[in-house]
Computed example of a mutant assay.
Amino acid sequence: MVNRIFSDWEWNIMVLRWGICGAGLICNDFVSALLAPPNNVHEVVCVGARSLARAQEFADRFGIKKAYGSYDEAATDPNVDVVYIGLIPCYHVKLSKQILKAGKNVLCEKPVASSLNQFLEVQQVAKDCKRFFMEAIWSRCFPIYRKIKEEIHSGNLGEIQHVQCQFCYTVVETIRFKKPELGRGGLHEFGIYTIQLATMVFNNEKPLKITADASFSDEGVDQNGCMTLTYKNGGKAVLVYSTLFQGKNSAIIYGSKGKIEIDEPFWAPASANLPSGKITNEIPCGPAPYNFPNSGGLRYEADCVKTCLEAGNLECSEVTFAESQAIYQIIDEVVRLTGINVQW
């Protein structure tokens, strides 16, 4: 069940006012998707970055009125309804808590945390402050994902027998993937997407057994990994991730009565094949070029946040606290099995 905010937060938002913490690649894509037509329901009030010059360049790109040389200023701007955190993961927990305590609602990029315990800390602050918080697992907000959930829950696939997917993308030369303290290893960055698909398909059920293996760079960052999750009745999820090569990043869900094929990239799909036929959803085109595949789909996530705030909800029904907890429980076990460094 989704928790609700007190009635003073239940209002009809004509335009949702955003503050942006970060001026990097993903923030570019989020804001571009946010402002994709029709763009009369979202407004970017301000952006904060490590330097004023960096924030100003970002603001000029999108016509944002205010640029701040710190995250604090963006997070406390009185005209902001909700803050999007698009920084590298090592900043997510601290900044999420800080912004929630400042009385703002928060959408924080995944992974919010390195472990379940860290995520629970943020969750508790959100509850104590009675503010909306969502981990930005944007896949769940795509219309295709919603349709897949409906198909599974309807029983049309029968009993789920197998989930197979991989997220393999070349980023080995990116500096933030070379330092464990930045929280940018393959499991938390890419593997989390494969895990979220498995937890969705198996309805947050705790696996009976998890096996996992990973390989590491000279600096100790996990680069490749493979996980097998075994559920009751013999259902399995085989999940692969890599930061070393570009793979075919599709996914297949097998049931006793049929299968679903999610076209690549499975985490941001434009199409999928169901037993009833092919389904598609639009990938909105924003004012600035995107850096990552199908980033226009971030608009679905932003619209979901607006819907939640209008309804007075503390959580998003597509990515509830329970959903994130189920994901981190698996991440914690994979970390234990493989020895992945989670010092951030």
Rank of each mutant, 00 (worst) to 15 (best):
G225A: 07
G225Q: 04
C226K: 13
C226Q: 09
C226H: 14
C226I: 15
C226F: 13
M227A: 14
T228M: 08
T230A: 11
K232D: 01
K236I: 15
V240Q: 07
V240N: 01
V240C: 03
T243P: 00
F245R: 06
Q246I: 09
K248E: 03
K248H: 13
K248G: 01
N249H: 04
A251M: 12
I252C: 11
I252A: 11
Y254T: 03
G255A: 05
S256E: 06
G258V: 06
I262A: 14
I262M: 05
D263A: 14
P265I: 03
A268F: 07
A268G: 09
S271M: 06
S271V: 02
A272K: 00
A272D: 06
L274M: 08
G277M: 05
K278S: 10
I279E: 04
N281G: 12
A288L: 04
Y290E: 00
F292G: 01
D303V: 10
D303Q: 02
C304Y: 11
K306R: 14
K306V: 04
K306G: 08
T307Y: 13
C308A: 15
C308H: 08
C308P: 04
L309V: 12
A311M: 12
G312T: 09
N313I: 01
F321Y: 13
E323P: 00
S324G: 11
Q325C: 06
Q325G: 02
A326I: 10
A326W: 04
I327A: 04
I327V: 15
Y328Q: 00
Q329L: 12
Q329H: 03
I331V: 15
I331A: 06
D332Q: 06
D332S: 05
E333K: 15
R336D: 05
R336F: 12
L337I: 15
T338R: 09
G339W: 15
G339L: 14
G339R: 12
I340E: 00
N341T: 05
N341P: 00
V342W: 10
Q343K: 10
